[in-house]
Design a protein around this nucleic acid. Structure first.
Length: 202
DNA sequence: GAAAAGATCTTCT
DNA sequence: GAAGATCTTTTCC
């Protein structure tokens, strides 16, 4: 608990719904360097986001491509709605709905630096400290994010995102093809901070 | 080290 | 019945 965040620094700004109300591939880039925090036992655990991906309704790789369903409903809600789904039967993935209400756009959070509370994070394995939140499934496991977060709003639940003027915007950002998909490979909507030790992959 | 396999469940064909 | 926005462990250079 000693490495958890007890008080949010005064200079940090909470990100509200309007920050998320933009094109997903713009939001994906702008979320880099922002702190993702989850409240656990009266303190915050989390750290700065270092890798994201964008998905849109007209994108064949997106869950929303074939319209709204019971699972992807949160993608179509107002910007800043949390979308969590189960993948491969065992891992959860965290997304934030973006764009206008009714549009199935979202940003997948792929990796984060475990800056606060690494010692109390659920770690699925004996991964190196810098890597315990590297990958969408591992990130959710570490922070205890599951389907119960789905449909909630950023900042109105145990989960919040903050802009830290000292880390945001990052100096450099890379982008390239998204990971683990077979369609929409021409859209280079994976974004990350170059050389960051907590990337899911180089 | 890299590659392959196994775990496990929802969605769509 | 197959594929999927994944990760861990095992197996093989």
């Amino acid at each position: 608990v000693s490495d958890s965040l007890v008080k949010i620094p005064d200079q940090w700004l909470p990100l509200e719904g309007d920050f998320f109300a933009k094109d997903a591939y713009v939001l994906a880039r702008e979320l880099l360097g922002c702190h993702l925090l989850v409240k656990k036992d009266d303190v915050w655990i989390g750290g700065p986001i270092c890798e994201t991906e964008a998905y849109t309704q007209d994108d064949p790789a997106s869950h929303s491509y074939r319209g709204e369903s019971l699972r992807n409903r949160s993608m179509f809600q107002e910007a800043g709605t949390i979308y969590v789904y189960l993948i491969y039967g065992m891992h959860f993935c965290l997304n934030f709905s973006s764009g206008a209400f009714g549009r199935g756009d979202a940003v997948l959070i792929r990796a984060m630096e475990p800056l606060f509370g690494a010692s109390v994070m659920n770690r699925g394995s004996s991964a190196k400290r810098a890597k315990i939140c590297s990958g969408p499934g591992r990130l959710c496991a570490a922070l205890g994010i599951d389907r119960s977060f789905d449909g909630q709003k950023v900042g109105e639940s145990a989960l919040s995102v903050w802009r830290d003027p000292e880390r945001h915007p990052p100096i450099r950002v890379f982008n390239g093809p998204r990971i683990g998909i077979s369609k929409g490979l021409d859209r280079h909507w994976r974004f990350g901070i170059p050389g960051h030790p907590s990337l899911s992959r180089p």
